[in-house]
Nucleic acid binder design. Structure first.
Lengths: 255, 255
DNA sequence: GCCCTTATGAATGTCAGACAATTAAAGGTC
DNA sequence: GACCTTTAATTGTCTGACATTCATAAGGGC
């Protein structure tokens, strides 16, 4: 009996329905702002219960594909995927991807700085006084000796985001957001000494100066140095962590 | 009773619960492979019905944060976010972002080629015979005159993905996937003439040759030319589309 | 003792029906 | 016309039930 349609019974009904609606949205058969049929209508159309339809809709809502509104003339509407929502999704996914897949500090660092250097020429050309001001503000913050390591990292992210945004290309900003923000948890594992902070602040200043003078080459150099320096800091931390882990390993075989 | 915490009633219960569990995962309080409490237990813990818990779990499943398994010793497990799953999510989001936000062809094109040029030095240094072979294969495919425009674009994407993958940095590949793949729908709107195809194939060949010779500078140049050429093709199409749209506009005021 | 079959129980998947909460629009009052 | 009330449609939540799946335990045949 089941041989009649064994093609895709391995998926939940709610997943199948969500996929059907998602396809309709992605392929443009439903446009932004359009209202989906009510849950009752959908359950009739798909021949399932309302609960199943609701689970499907929640799946779509989790991807910001639809938004729901209660009350008369409420319902589920195809969402205009804002850059903001896309940013936060991308950042969450990138962060998890790095934390769950044992991506080395080197790999993540290389990806981040490679992408940032790509932005540098555009940023040098198009930077505004606003983006420069943001970067200077963060540099000032990073110079405060009583700043916690976490706050230092957060400020670092803000500065680099300002660099990326200075390129004035929202698509680029979106793509870079993941690479820059996802590094923060890795950076948070590093204890920044006064000396290392000074070095970083100096490089941040060189970078900002380069943008101010619209000197793409100097910005590229500053980013190269920053990458190399970050890498040495990260390597030191990872190495000492590895040593500690080895120490804690039981000397005899387990059990 | 409920007056005790009216702070955040603007969100659904299922959204709140999903957020609570998501935070636990992102912050590492739950690790990959760990089993969540059963739906019955969760509904008791959060003081809500099982349906509400299920909607929350579906939201998390939609983001590939958890996977569920039926049967004895089944349940919801914290998912290891694979690069593969992250790729497809990122691509879907990027594609929608572009189609829904009236991003100009210029902006998308600039972002894509800026990012690809960032990969070029690494790709030139690390390219394998495998990545070169993939690129040559796609070039051969693109040279077939009877290839449809859609297939030509798909082949273009494959070739550029090979370029990105040649950098041998999975994080970079992941971040770039969105930029490269999301361009395809925009590219699909272009009708490629025999002449334009020839030009693109020539530039693809130059790019591949550059990688083979590990000549980062030549690869950069080829990508710059490719960007410029793609841009002119895109501009032509957009301009003619704009003209047609104007023609179709009713000559008098509507109504 | 060993293997195959069968129960068992725990868990998710689905359904049906009910009620609460919300909200825009229609209708009524002044 | 401005303001208030009613109304109907829709989502949000709860309850209880049954179906389905699946690892393990129990049982029977040899």
């Amino acid at each position: 009996m089941k041989t009649a349609h064994p093609a895709t019974p391995r998926q939940d009904l709610s997943a199948q329905i969500a996929e059907a609606i998602r396809d309709a949205i992605v392929e443009g058969r439903m446009i932004t702002g359009e209202r989906l049929p009510s849950e009752a209508e959908l359950s009739e159309q798909f021949g399932v219960s309302r609960s199943t339809v609701r689970e499907a809709l929640k799946r779509l809502a989790a991807q910001s594909l639809i938004r729901t509104q209660r009350g008369a003339f409420g319902g589920a509407f195809v969402n205009r995927l804002s850059f903001e929502a896309a940013y936060s999704q991308h950042i969450t996914t990138s962060t998890l991807l790095l934390s769950m897949n044992a991506v080395s500090f080197e790999t993540a660092c290389e990806a981040r700085y490679t992408l940032e250097r790509a932005c540098a020429p555009l940023a040098a050309h198009r930077r505004t006084t606003g983006s420069l001001a943001t970067m200077r503000t963060e540099i000032a913050r990073q110079s405060q000796p009583d700043l916690s390591d976490e706050a230092f990292c957060a400020s670092d992210v803000t500065l680099h985001r300002a660099l990326v945004d200075a390129a004035q290309n929202p698509v680029l900003s979106y793509q870079l957001a993941g690479a820059v923000e996802a590094m923060q948890p890795l950076m948070n594992m590093i204890t920044f000494t006064a000396r290392s902070r000074g070095e970083i602040v100096a490089l941040h200043t060189a970078l900002t100066d380069a943008l101010e003078h619209q000197d793409a080459q100097a910005a590229d150099t500053a980013l190269h140095r920053l990458e190399a320096y970050t890498l040495t800091l990260g390597r030191d931390v990872m190495a000492s962590r590895a040593r500690n882990a080895t120490k804690r390993t039981p000397p005899s075989s387990s059990g």
